[in-house]
């Protein structure tokens, strides 16, 4: 009698465990499957169209020889730290930065061009790290009022915040490039 009770309790515990396990795995699988769907959705809707666009631009630039012109202008800027600082100062100019910002299109095109310059050996690989920051001083400068509004900022905060961020970039842009340059030592040991 007592034995029977024990075995019933044991069965219940076991089945409870199995149900819990099943539920947990079900939740995990559902989350992963959903993650896959979201990822593919994102790829189809945002990433692959951008790759098509950038492939077109790079293809034209390389085939027509415009690429050589841009490369000639970009290579001396991207191949050493002083050039990168100059590049950073230019894209960070407070009236220029909001124009260069949208969609990070300019940063992405320059980045891809720097990538091809690295392949061609015109820019040393260890310049990659400071280059990330030099081509991106203007990041989000087009979006300040909207970004602040998303954070529920009040009108006067926006009035002060927009110039504050724009001016800050001209200072911190150079600092960022220098820190990245220092951090790039030993990146690709020979």
């Amino acid at each position: 009698m007592a034995n029977e009770k024990n075995s019933v309790g044991g069965m219940q515990r076991l089945s409870g465990l199995l149900v819990g396990l099943g539920r947990g795995i079900g939740k995990l699988v559902a989350a992963l499957y959903d993650g896959g769907r979201k990822t593919i959705d994102m790829m189809i809707r945002n990433v692959i169209p951008f790759i098509a666009f950038i492939s077109f631009v790079i293809g034209i630039i390389q085939k027509t020889g415009v690429g050589n012109l841009i490369a000639q202008a970009l290579a001396p800027l991207a191949s050493n730290i002083f050039g990168l600082i100059i590049l950073g100062l230019i894209v960070g100019i407070p009236v220029l930065s909001p124009v260069l910002g949208p969609g990070a299109v300019i940063a992405q095109i320059i980045g891809t061009l720097v990538g091809t310059l690295i392949v061609e050996g015109k820019v040393p690989p260890q310049m990659a790290l400071p280059a990330f920051f030099a081509i991106d001083v203007q990041v989000g400068c087009d979006f300040i009022p909207v970004g602040l509004a998303l954070g529920e900022a009040k009108p006067k905060t926006v009035e002060v915040g927009v110039p504050a961020v724009l001016f800050s970039r001209e200072i911190t842009g150079v600092i960022a490039i220098l820190i990245a340059y220092l951090a790039s030592f030993g990146l690709f040991p020979r």
Binding site: M42, M43, N46, V47, F50, I54, G103, A104, A107, Q108, I109, I110, G111, T112, L113, V114, G115, T116, L117, I118, V119, P125, A128, L129, A131, F132, I135, D136, A180, A183, S184, L187, F188
Partner: peptide, 28 residues
Amino acid sequence: PGELFVYLGIASGLQKIGLPIGGVAIRY
């Protein structure tokens, strides 16, 4: 994901000449 090529543009260049990009990603 809509702005991957700020990183990928340069990183894919490194990858094409056979350099590892893990260290670059972590330092970035």
